[in-house]
């Protein structure tokens, strides 16, 4: 079961399990922030840790809340480990690693939904099997939200409603989630009564 307790939701809202070691010809681990703890937990369960690490490439970035466990990640001793300053900075390298992955590669995604969603999207675009991807949520629950009106994506949304960082409309956050866009859906909250915007509540931390 997930270490993060999410409130009950509609069916597109992703659910997460714990990472479990699986046999594989190669292992790609993509994590941010507290996701490093999920990776440590995963490695503790591996029967032949040295063998797995010799076939492992870790891509890591600090979380949106500032959590940086890169030192611990580096200390795992994977064949390759890389730390990016942000998710956007990580994407070009991630795209190359994923595109060159062979069948039989196992993917482990750990951390925030923004990181998990964008990594999952990159992997899905290659046509690699969905069953080769595991996801475990750790750390911040801030959301990546696409404005359904202007299509701009606002990162690290903490409150509901919030102001679209692109067009400025006041949006409420629906639990409706697109894996293709790797984002939740934001819908104008005061369309029918312009100006009537409820106070923003910090729902995602």
């Amino acid at each position: 079961m997930s270490k993060t307790n999410f409130p009950p939701s509609i069916k597109t809202r992703p659910v997460y399990a714990e990472l479990e070691p699986r046999p594989g010809t190669a292992h790609v681990i993509i994590a941010d922030g507290e996701g490093a703890e999920a990776v440590a937990h995963l490695l503790a369960k591996v029967p032949d840790r040295a063998l797995m690490l010799a076939r492992t490439h870790i891509l890591y970035t600090p979380g949106p809340n500032g959590t940086d466990q890169w030192a611990a990640v580096l200390a795992f001793g994977a064949a390759q480990a890389y730390c990016a300053p942000t998710i956007p900075a990580m994407l070009p390298r991630m795209a190359k690693v994923v595109a060159e992955a062979h069948m039989g590669t196992q993917f482990y995604l750990a951390g925030t939904e923004g990181l998990i969603g964008q990594a999952e999207r990159e992997i899905m675009m290659t046509g690699l099997p969905f069953a080769a991807i595991q996801k475990e949520h750790r750390g911040s629950t801030v959301r990546r939200v696409q404005c359904v009106h202007c299509k701009g994506i606002t990162e690290n949304v903490a409150t509901d409603p919030f102001k679209c960082s692109h067009c400025g409309l006041n949006l409420f956050v629906r639990d409706h989630y697109s894996r293709r866009i790797a984002a939740f859906q934001g819908v104008n909250i005061d369309a029918e009564d312009p100006g009537l915007v409820p106070a923003a509540v910090e729902k995602f931390k």
């Binding site: 069916k11 696409q146 409706h176 989630y177 293709r180 859906q185």
Partner: peptide
Amino acid sequence: WSLDFDVGMNFMEWHAPVPLAH
């Protein structure tokens, strides 16, 4: 409903927002 948001979803995903029916 938005095709641009829902395209690529499976049957349960694109019906997710409908109340009561699930």
